[in-house]
Measured scan of single mutants.
Amino acid sequence: CHSECLGNCSQPDDPTKCVACRNFYLDGRCVETCPPPYYHFQDWRCVNFSFCQDLHHKCKNSRRQGCHQYVIHNNKCIPECPSGYTMNSSNLLCTPCLGPCPKVCHLLEGEKTIDSVTSAQELRGCTVINGSLIINIRGGNNLAAELEANLGLIEEISGYLKIRRSYALVSLSFFRKLRLIRGETLEIGNYSFYALDNQNLRQLWDWSKHNLTITQGKLFFHYNPKLCLSEIHKMEEVSGTKGRQERNDIALKTNGDQASCENELLKFSYIRTSFDKILLRWEPYWPPDFRDLLGFMLFYKEAPYQNVTEFDGQDACGSNSWTVVDIDPPLRSNDPKSQNHPGWLMRGLKPWTQYAIFVKTLVTFSDERRTYGAKSDIIYVQTDATNPSVPLDPISVSNSSSQIILKWKPPSDPNGNITHYLVFWERQAEDSELFELDYCLKGLKLPSRTWSPPFESEDSQKHNQSEYEDSAGECCSCPKTDSQILKELEESSFRKTFEDYLHNVVFVPRKT
């Protein structure tokens, strides 16, 4: 048989008469490798580009789960590009990614509803959504962080984005990388972005840091009482949809009607710091009717980097990364020049730590249904340095008659930039024990000054392991946590139920 035959053949030295091919099969003959313009397919066939392209389009058009959109890589027609490569849609070739590779997620039936953290986790790592997304989240724990972890990498949506009755959302900033909504599939009414009845939605994105392009379709905003109209108009300008909307697409009466839409800028007039305090004062603000001013709200939190936005980490279910302080308005003076500047002394802060701070007014709604208010920009203030805590785990070892090696770990709280350490030492008198000992005694162990690591005695271990207080009263049991108490109650309830079950099964009433 021919060298490319495997198993047997019907005619000697003829690659077209093989029972099976050793390498690849091409047009009725066995070959060692697939010549151009053919590609290896499933490690035994040679196919042309049209064959591989037909497989790709067949799966793409069917949208069946589990099928493969075949691509070409290293002269092979394979189910998908290997790690580190992405497909070129024009020629199906796998090309190296520039940075992290995109991950295209194809949605069944063309859309997916995100109504819980669990459903959001199914899209973790996706960068391109081939379909439409509907966000409908009523509640949950730590929602802002969970949504950002699972949806934060999405850069492109081919269909539309719909935010509907998501009472738990305060902001859409968890879509931190969303840059493009194509609108290839539109919501009824030709809408590519749809926001309806979101009672706590206050911000779409921080438009000073976020760009969003909507290729096709219109915007729809109705019944978002805490979303200011200025935020919607800003989205029109940034996304390129200005002029597409009709009169009733953006409701003037049901958007922002319960919001404090600040239209003035508060400026800080005085800032002073110490290692654990920050004193702030800002310019006074009074609405047209000074009785509408209820006070100020001061927001602050630790910020290692200057990239904080107002609604980071917030949701309507209680999660809030900001510390909020309510401040009463100052006494009002008739003389504008003698107006008191409101302020606040922030206490209990960490030394040498940068804080993000902003302040906003708290006002009631005027009778004319106009909203007044003022808010400052987010500023960054760093507390002063102070003395560091003591170095940890000092170790001293003498390696000769004239040297001592000293080692330690950095302090747990540096409280500033540590530039150097101060080492103090003092000579001590020799131990009298060394002169009084009889060095001729056998088995004498000389006193040693070398360091030995501390260890816990058996008594201390027994005390720590004991669940009861000892007789001397030195140790006591740790208080039980809520989960331990709940577990004990469940076990007790189970024992009672099981005992009742045994009584009912074992003891049967005697027939009379």
Rank of each mutant, 00 (worst) to 15 (best):
K162W: 06
I404M: 06
S321F: 11
L123T: 14
N190T: 12
R281T: 08
G125S: 09
N150P: 15
R291F: 02
I214D: 01
V104P: 09
I395K: 04
T127F: 02
Y372N: 15
F275Y: 12
V363N: 12
I214F: 11
N141Q: 05
S171N: 12
D289L: 02
E262N: 14
I181L: 13
A251S: 05
L151I: 06
G183H: 03
H233P: 04
N190R: 04
L279V: 12
D276V: 01
I214E: 00
I214Q: 11
P351L: 02
F220Y: 03
S116A: 14
E310H: 11
K337P: 11
L294V: 00
E148P: 04
W322H: 10
L201G: 00
S274W: 05
I188C: 09
W344R: 13
A259L: 07
P304N: 15
T213L: 10
G373W: 04
R281L: 06
Q216V: 11
I188D: 12
N263H: 08
E264Q: 05
F296M: 15
S338A: 08
T383W: 00
T127S: 12
F365Q: 14
R138V: 04
D335T: 06
Q121Y: 01
L123V: 14
K103F: 05
T254L: 10
I157W: 01
S132H: 01
E187I: 07
S400Y: 13
Y372A: 02
L227T: 08
N150M: 11
L180I: 14
L151A: 07
G159T: 01
E156P: 00
V363L: 13
S402C: 06
R124S: 12
L186D: 09
F193R: 00
G110V: 03
L178E: 01
A145L: 10
I114H: 01
C317N: 02
I134C: 14
I378V: 15
S396P: 02
P351V: 06
D115A: 07
L133S: 00
R370Q: 07
T254K: 08
K103A: 13
D249V: 12
N334W: 05
N141P: 04
P391L: 03
D326L: 02
S119Y: 11
G348L: 05
Q258R: 05
F311C: 01
P394I: 03
T323A: 07
W322F: 04
V359T: 09
F175M: 08
L212M: 03
R179K: 10
G343E: 15
E109K: 13
I379D: 05
L186F: 06
Y380F: 13
T371L: 10
I278L: 15
Y160V: 05
G256T: 02
Y167M: 15
A251M: 09
D315L: 06
A251W: 14
I395A: 04
